[in-house]
Protein backbone atom coordinates (compact mmCIF):
# COMPACT_ATOMS: atom_id res chain seq x y z
CA UNK A 1 0.00 0.00 0.00
CA UNK A 2 1.33 3.41 -0.80
CA UNK A 3 2.18 5.90 1.95
CA UNK A 4 -0.54 8.35 0.92
CA UNK A 5 -3.74 6.35 1.16
CA UNK A 6 -6.09 9.22 0.68
CA UNK A 7 -5.91 12.83 -0.30
CA UNK A 8 -5.74 13.74 3.36
CA UNK A 9 -2.62 13.58 5.45
CA UNK A 10 -2.23 12.10 8.93
CA UNK A 11 -1.37 13.94 12.12
CA UNK A 12 1.70 16.12 11.90
CA UNK A 13 4.00 15.96 14.91
CA UNK A 14 4.09 18.97 17.16
CA UNK A 15 7.55 20.28 18.08
CA UNK A 16 8.96 19.57 21.55
CA UNK A 17 12.34 21.26 21.98
CA UNK A 18 11.35 24.79 21.03
CA UNK A 19 8.54 25.04 23.58
CA UNK A 20 10.68 23.34 26.23
CA UNK A 21 13.38 25.97 25.73
CA UNK A 22 10.82 28.79 26.06
CA UNK A 23 9.50 27.33 29.32
CA UNK A 24 13.01 26.86 30.69
CA UNK A 25 13.89 30.46 29.80
CA UNK A 26 10.72 31.82 31.42
CA UNK A 27 11.32 29.80 34.59
CA UNK A 28 14.92 30.99 34.77
CA UNK A 29 13.81 34.62 34.32
CA UNK A 30 11.15 34.23 36.97
CA UNK A 31 13.57 32.72 39.49
CA UNK A 32 16.62 34.91 38.82
CA UNK A 33 15.06 38.13 37.50
CA UNK A 34 13.62 39.62 40.69
CA UNK A 35 16.73 38.57 42.64
CA UNK A 36 19.15 40.26 40.23
CA UNK A 37 17.16 43.42 39.49
CA UNK A 38 17.28 46.23 42.07
CA UNK A 39 14.47 45.60 44.56
CA UNK A 40 13.29 49.24 44.65
CA UNK A 41 11.83 48.70 41.16
CA UNK A 42 8.97 46.91 42.89
CA UNK A 43 8.38 49.72 45.38
CA UNK A 44 5.69 52.34 45.11
CA UNK A 45 7.09 55.54 43.59
CA UNK A 46 5.83 58.82 42.17
CA UNK A 47 6.47 57.86 38.53
CA UNK A 48 3.03 56.44 37.83
CA UNK A 49 1.94 55.44 34.31
CA UNK A 50 5.31 56.03 32.64
CA UNK A 51 5.23 54.60 29.11
CA UNK A 52 7.82 51.95 28.19
CA UNK A 53 11.28 53.44 27.76
CA UNK A 54 14.95 52.88 28.56
CA UNK A 55 14.45 53.31 32.35
CA UNK A 56 11.43 51.08 32.57
CA UNK A 57 11.31 48.54 29.75
CA UNK A 58 7.65 47.73 30.19
CA UNK A 59 6.62 51.10 31.68
CA UNK A 60 5.20 51.63 35.17
CA UNK A 61 1.80 51.05 36.74
CA UNK A 62 -0.62 53.23 38.73
CA UNK A 63 1.58 53.09 41.84
CA UNK A 64 4.78 53.76 39.94
CA UNK A 65 6.07 50.23 40.19
CA UNK A 66 8.21 48.93 37.32
CA UNK A 67 6.06 46.64 35.17
CA UNK A 68 8.94 44.44 33.98
CA UNK A 69 9.76 43.63 37.60
CA UNK A 70 6.09 43.02 38.37
CA UNK A 71 5.70 40.71 35.37
CA UNK A 72 8.65 38.62 36.58
CA UNK A 73 7.21 38.52 40.12
CA UNK A 74 3.90 37.49 38.59
CA UNK A 75 5.69 34.77 36.65
CA UNK A 76 7.04 33.37 39.93
CA UNK A 77 3.61 33.11 41.51
CA UNK A 78 1.75 32.02 38.37
CA UNK A 79 4.25 29.30 37.52
CA UNK A 80 4.37 28.15 41.13
CA UNK A 81 0.57 28.04 41.43
CA UNK A 82 0.35 26.30 38.05
CA UNK A 83 2.93 23.66 38.87
CA UNK A 84 1.74 22.97 42.42
CA UNK A 85 -1.93 22.92 41.41
CA UNK A 86 -1.17 20.59 38.53
CA UNK A 87 0.84 18.33 40.87
CA UNK A 88 -2.17 18.01 43.19
CA UNK A 89 -4.49 17.32 40.26
CA UNK A 90 -1.96 14.72 39.06
CA UNK A 91 -2.06 12.92 42.41
CA UNK A 92 -5.83 13.01 42.74
CA UNK A 93 -6.55 12.20 39.10
CA UNK A 94 -4.13 9.29 38.81
CA UNK A 95 -5.30 7.72 42.09
CA UNK A 96 -8.96 8.16 41.20
CA UNK A 97 -8.55 6.82 37.67
CA UNK A 98 -6.46 3.87 38.86
CA UNK A 99 -8.99 2.87 41.50
CA UNK A 100 -11.96 3.23 39.15
CA UNK A 101 -10.33 1.45 36.23
CA UNK A 102 -8.82 -1.36 38.29
CA UNK A 103 -11.92 -2.01 40.40
CA UNK A 104 -14.25 -1.95 37.40
CA UNK A 105 -17.91 -2.86 37.67
CA UNK A 106 -20.27 -0.92 39.90
CA UNK A 107 -17.58 1.06 41.71
CA UNK A 108 -16.14 2.17 38.37
CA UNK A 109 -19.46 3.35 37.01
CA UNK A 110 -20.31 5.09 40.29
CA UNK A 111 -16.96 6.90 40.37
CA UNK A 112 -17.20 7.91 36.72
CA UNK A 113 -20.78 9.15 37.23
CA UNK A 114 -19.40 11.50 39.89
CA UNK A 115 -16.82 12.76 37.40
CA UNK A 116 -19.59 13.37 34.85
CA UNK A 117 -21.58 15.38 37.38
CA UNK A 118 -18.52 17.44 38.36
CA UNK A 119 -17.86 18.11 34.68
CA UNK A 120 -21.32 19.62 34.36
CA UNK A 121 -20.76 22.14 37.16
CA UNK A 122 -19.22 25.35 35.84
CA UNK A 123 -15.64 25.19 37.12
CA UNK A 124 -15.47 28.83 38.11
CA UNK A 125 -18.45 28.46 40.47
CA UNK A 126 -17.03 25.30 41.96
CA UNK A 127 -13.73 27.10 42.56
CA UNK A 128 -15.42 30.13 44.11
CA UNK A 129 -17.41 28.01 46.54
CA UNK A 130 -14.32 26.02 47.50
CA UNK A 131 -12.07 29.06 47.92
CA UNK A 132 -14.58 31.11 49.89
CA UNK A 133 -15.38 28.15 52.16
CA UNK A 134 -11.86 26.94 52.82
CA UNK A 135 -10.00 30.25 53.09
CA UNK A 136 -11.55 31.39 56.41
CA UNK A 137 -11.18 27.87 57.79
CA UNK A 138 -7.46 27.70 57.09
CA UNK A 139 -6.99 31.25 58.41
CA UNK A 140 -8.61 30.27 61.70
CA UNK A 141 -6.62 27.06 61.83
CA UNK A 142 -3.33 28.91 61.32
CA UNK A 143 -4.24 31.50 63.94
CA UNK A 144 -5.13 28.97 66.61
CA UNK A 145 -2.23 26.64 65.91
CA UNK A 146 0.39 29.32 66.40
CA UNK A 147 1.56 29.46 62.79
CA UNK A 148 0.78 33.16 62.49
CA UNK A 149 3.73 33.77 60.21
CA UNK A 150 2.02 31.65 57.57
CA UNK A 151 -1.21 33.62 57.43
CA UNK A 152 0.01 35.78 54.54
CA UNK A 153 0.41 32.67 52.45
CA UNK A 154 -2.90 31.07 53.39
CA UNK A 155 -4.61 32.49 50.29
CA UNK A 156 -2.04 31.02 47.93
CA UNK A 157 -2.09 27.66 49.68
CA UNK A 158 -5.87 27.54 49.42
CA UNK A 159 -5.74 28.63 45.78
CA UNK A 160 -3.29 25.88 44.88
CA UNK A 161 -5.32 23.31 46.78
CA UNK A 162 -8.65 24.32 45.22
CA UNK A 163 -7.25 24.61 41.70
CA UNK A 164 -5.75 21.15 42.06
CA UNK A 165 -9.01 19.80 43.40
CA UNK A 166 -11.00 21.10 40.42
CA UNK A 167 -8.67 20.24 37.55
CA UNK A 168 -8.24 16.49 37.97
CA UNK A 169 -11.30 15.30 36.06
CA UNK A 170 -9.69 14.91 32.63
CA UNK A 171 -6.70 13.20 34.20
CA UNK A 172 -8.96 10.70 35.98
CA UNK A 173 -10.77 9.88 32.73
CA UNK A 174 -7.57 9.38 30.77
CA UNK A 175 -5.95 7.22 33.44
CA UNK A 176 -9.07 5.11 33.87
CA UNK A 177 -9.30 4.47 30.13
CA UNK A 178 -5.64 3.53 30.09
CA UNK A 179 -6.03 1.14 33.04
CA UNK A 180 -9.05 -0.49 31.43
CA UNK A 181 -7.09 -1.29 28.31
CA UNK A 182 -3.92 -2.31 30.20
CA UNK A 183 -5.90 -4.61 32.47
CA UNK A 184 -6.94 -6.74 29.51
CA UNK A 185 -3.33 -7.46 28.53
CA UNK A 186 -1.95 -10.97 29.16
CA UNK A 187 0.89 -9.69 31.36
CA UNK A 188 -1.61 -8.54 33.98
CA UNK A 189 -3.33 -11.92 33.97
CA UNK A 190 0.09 -13.56 34.16
CA UNK A 191 1.11 -11.44 37.13
CA UNK A 192 -2.13 -12.31 38.84
CA UNK A 193 -1.64 -16.02 38.12
CA UNK A 194 1.86 -15.82 39.59
CA UNK A 195 0.36 -14.61 42.83
CA UNK A 196 1.01 -10.84 42.64
CA UNK A 197 -1.18 -8.85 45.00
CA UNK A 198 -3.49 -6.18 43.62
CA UNK A 199 -1.23 -3.50 45.05
CA UNK A 200 1.73 -5.16 43.43
CA UNK A 201 0.04 -5.22 40.06
CA UNK A 202 -0.96 -1.58 40.37
CA UNK A 203 2.46 -0.34 41.40
CA UNK A 204 4.71 -2.67 39.40
CA UNK A 205 2.76 -3.13 36.21
CA UNK A 206 0.04 -0.57 35.67
CA UNK A 207 1.59 2.61 37.05
CA UNK A 208 4.82 2.48 35.00
CA UNK A 209 2.80 1.86 31.86
CA UNK A 210 0.49 4.82 32.23
CA UNK A 211 2.93 7.31 33.71
CA UNK A 212 3.92 8.59 30.28
CA UNK A 213 0.45 9.69 29.34
CA UNK A 214 -0.26 11.00 32.81
CA UNK A 215 2.81 13.23 32.54
CA UNK A 216 1.62 14.49 29.16
CA UNK A 217 -1.68 15.57 30.70
CA UNK A 218 0.20 17.06 33.65
CA UNK A 219 1.92 19.35 31.13
CA UNK A 220 -1.49 20.31 29.74
CA UNK A 221 -2.95 20.90 33.22
CA UNK A 222 -0.39 23.55 34.17
CA UNK A 223 -1.66 26.13 31.63
CA UNK A 224 -5.25 25.32 32.58
CA UNK A 225 -4.50 26.01 36.24
CA UNK A 226 -2.69 29.27 35.45
CA UNK A 227 -5.67 30.36 33.36
CA UNK A 228 -8.14 29.48 36.14
CA UNK A 229 -6.08 31.44 38.65
CA UNK A 230 -6.18 34.47 36.36
CA UNK A 231 -9.99 34.36 36.29
CA UNK A 232 -10.09 34.16 40.09
CA UNK A 233 -7.76 37.16 40.25
CA UNK A 234 -10.03 39.07 37.88
CA UNK A 235 -12.96 38.39 40.20
CA UNK A 236 -10.90 39.53 43.18
CA UNK A 237 -10.60 36.20 44.98
CA UNK A 238 -7.18 35.23 43.65
CA UNK A 239 -3.72 36.40 44.67
CA UNK A 240 -3.87 39.70 46.55
CA UNK A 241 -1.58 42.74 46.13
CA UNK A 242 1.27 43.42 47.01
CA UNK A 243 1.92 39.95 45.66
CA UNK A 244 1.48 39.70 41.91
CA UNK A 245 0.31 37.04 39.53
CA UNK A 246 -0.18 37.38 35.80
CA UNK A 247 -3.92 37.22 36.37
CA UNK A 248 -3.78 40.12 38.82
CA UNK A 249 -1.59 42.22 36.50
CA UNK A 250 -3.89 41.46 33.57
CA UNK A 251 -7.03 42.41 35.43
CA UNK A 252 -5.35 45.67 36.54
CA UNK A 253 -4.34 46.23 32.93
CA UNK A 254 -7.82 45.51 31.64
CA UNK A 255 -9.21 48.16 33.98
CA UNK A 256 -6.64 50.71 32.80
CA UNK A 257 -7.99 50.62 29.24
CA UNK A 258 -10.19 53.68 28.72
CA UNK A 259 -10.83 56.11 25.87
CA UNK A 260 -9.18 59.12 27.53
CA UNK A 261 -5.80 57.62 28.21
CA UNK A 262 -4.86 54.22 26.87
CA UNK A 263 -2.32 52.67 29.21
CA UNK A 264 -1.90 49.84 26.72
CA UNK A 265 1.40 48.59 28.14
CA UNK A 266 -0.29 47.52 31.38
CA UNK A 267 -2.33 45.00 29.38
CA UNK A 268 -0.06 44.06 26.48
CA UNK A 269 3.11 43.04 28.33
CA UNK A 270 1.56 40.75 30.96
CA UNK A 271 -0.67 39.29 28.22
CA UNK A 272 2.39 38.57 26.08
CA UNK A 273 4.27 36.94 28.94
CA UNK A 274 1.32 34.76 29.84
CA UNK A 275 0.39 33.89 26.26
CA UNK A 276 3.94 32.89 25.33
CA UNK A 277 4.30 30.67 28.41
CA UNK A 278 0.89 29.02 28.09
CA UNK A 279 1.38 28.48 24.34
CA UNK A 280 4.74 26.85 24.99
CA UNK A 281 3.27 24.59 27.67
CA UNK A 282 0.40 23.58 25.40
CA UNK A 283 2.75 22.92 22.48
CA UNK A 284 5.00 20.87 24.71
CA UNK A 285 2.03 18.84 25.95
CA UNK A 286 0.73 18.27 22.41
CA UNK A 287 4.18 17.30 21.19
CA UNK A 288 4.76 14.87 24.05
CA UNK A 289 1.32 13.39 23.46
CA UNK A 290 2.04 12.83 19.77
CA UNK A 291 5.18 10.91 20.62
CA UNK A 292 4.11 9.14 23.83
CA UNK A 293 0.41 8.35 23.48
CA UNK A 294 0.16 4.99 21.71
CA UNK A 295 -3.30 5.75 20.38
CA UNK A 296 -1.99 8.80 18.59
CA UNK A 297 1.13 7.21 17.17
CA UNK A 298 0.91 6.74 13.44
Amino acid sequence: MSEDRTRFRGLPRAPIWGPAAVIAAMTLLAVLGPALLPAQLGDVSRDSFLPPGPGHWFGTDLNGRDLFYRVLLGAQISLLVGAAGAAISFGVGVTYGLVAGYAGGTLDSALMRIVDVLYAIPRLIFLLVLVSTLDPLLRRLLETSGLRAWIGYSKIMILVLCLGLTEWLTMARIVRGQVLSLKAHPFVTAARALGQTHAGIIFNHLLPNLLGIAIVYLTLTIPAVILDESFLSFLGVGVQAPLASWGLLLSDGAQAINPIKGYWWLLIFPALAMAVTLLALNFLGDGLRDSLDPRRRR
Binding site: I257, A271, A275, L279
Partner: peptide, 20 residues
Protein backbone atom coordinates in the same frame (compact mmCIF):
# COMPACT_ATOMS: atom_id res chain seq x y z
CA UNK B 1 -4.40 27.96 20.89
CA UNK B 2 -3.87 31.70 21.33
CA UNK B 3 -7.62 32.15 21.81
CA UNK B 4 -7.59 29.41 24.46
CA UNK B 5 -4.50 30.75 26.24
CA UNK B 6 -5.73 34.32 26.59
CA UNK B 7 -8.47 34.83 29.18
CA UNK B 8 -11.57 36.62 27.89
CA UNK B 9 -10.85 39.62 30.12
CA UNK B 10 -7.76 40.17 27.98
CA UNK B 11 -9.35 39.45 24.59
CA UNK B 12 -12.22 41.86 25.35
CA UNK B 13 -10.10 44.91 26.23
CA UNK B 14 -7.72 44.12 23.35
CA UNK B 15 -10.66 44.19 20.93
CA UNK B 16 -11.88 47.44 22.48
CA UNK B 17 -8.40 48.92 22.20
CA UNK B 18 -8.21 47.93 18.53
CA UNK B 19 -11.73 48.38 17.18
CA UNK B 20 -13.11 51.12 19.43
Amino acid sequence: LVAICLPSFVIGPLLILLLS
